[in-house]
């Protein structure tokens, strides 16, 4: 099938799909007039019931905590899959950069780049931890905070190169941390099951709304998720950074 025929067929089916989509969204409630009722019930009840201002976090880690557990394991499985796919195909690699790239960009990053990287690292760590810890009080949370913190690895790679990155970020260590974060979420679920008879029921004291330690199990689960997401993204960066290395042995 050549490109012209493929494009023509896709144009026709795309237009049909677009028309179908237009017809379908025509049946939705009109834009800007959310009819409820679940969102409204949660917005009214949750601030008092769970002593938490951020309802999105309450939904993620409490009311819909079971779903988030599943989604966390999708993340876990994807990271494991990437490690499997890339490592399986990799021979022993050196820590030298690819020769062509070295010729292209000169030997190393300049002092100005390194200095800027250090500054950016400080901001990344501070803001990432702030976002990750204040899940209940601000529009932050473990997912966002962890993903932002993992920018640490990308900045290290850009400013200081792979050898430094590999020395600072231990692959074995982060594998253990990621697994611990994922496992802790499930263990919290089992612990609450034993304590109360319901999986992931919020059994801890709720505290006062807006305080750092409030909302029961929510900040603890949030921390587990944050640690897991951060360690998982670190592993991703390490795996992909490995791919820029030269191979000591040619693949067969």
């Amino acid at each position: 099938m050549n490109d012209r025929i493929r494009k023509t067929i896709m144009m026709a089916t795309g237009a049909a799909l677009f028309a179908l989509g237009l017809w379908a969204v025509g049946g939705l409630p009109s834009f800007g007039h959310y009819p409820g009722p679940y969102g409204d019930v949660l917005n009214t009840v949750a601030p008092h019931e769970r002593q938490i201002p951020n309802i999105v976090t309450a939904v993620n880690f409490d009311y819909r905590g079971m779903d988030t557990l599943g989604e966390e394991y999708i993340f876990f499985a994807a990271v494991a899959g990437i490690a499997l796919v890339l490592r399986n195909d990799r021979k022993r690699t050196t820590i030298d950069a690819l020769p062509s790239r070295r010729a292209l960009h000169g030997p190393d990053a300049t002092d100005a780049v390194r200095m800027f990287t250090v500054l950016a690292l400080a901001v990344t760590v501070a803001f990432g931890m702030y976002l990750g810890i204040h899940a209940a009080q601000t529009p932050g949370g473990g997912f966002q905070g962890g993903a932002l913190l993992s920018g640490f690895a990308a900045l290290l790679l850009l400013g200081f190169g792979f050898p430094v990155m590999r020395k600072i970020l231990s692959q074995d260590g982060f594998e253990a941390v990621e697994a611990a974060g994922a496992g802790a979420y499930a263990l919290i679920g089992i612990a609450t099951l034993v304590a109360s008879g319901a999986f992931l029921k919020n059994v801890l004291p709720l505290g006062g709304e807006g305080q750092l330690f409030s909302a029961g199990t929510i900040p603890i689960i949030n921390l587990c998720v944050g640690v897991e997401v951060c360690a998982g993204f670190f592993l991703l960066f390490l795996e992909f950074a490995h791919e820029t290395r030269i191979e000591e042995q040619e693949p067969e």
Partner: peptide
Amino acid sequence: PVFSDVLPGTRAVDPVVDALTLT
């Protein structure tokens, strides 16, 4: 749907779809 700066009961969007989008 974050009632830190505004009082609970303020007109807010649906938090369920926000949570879904996040994950």
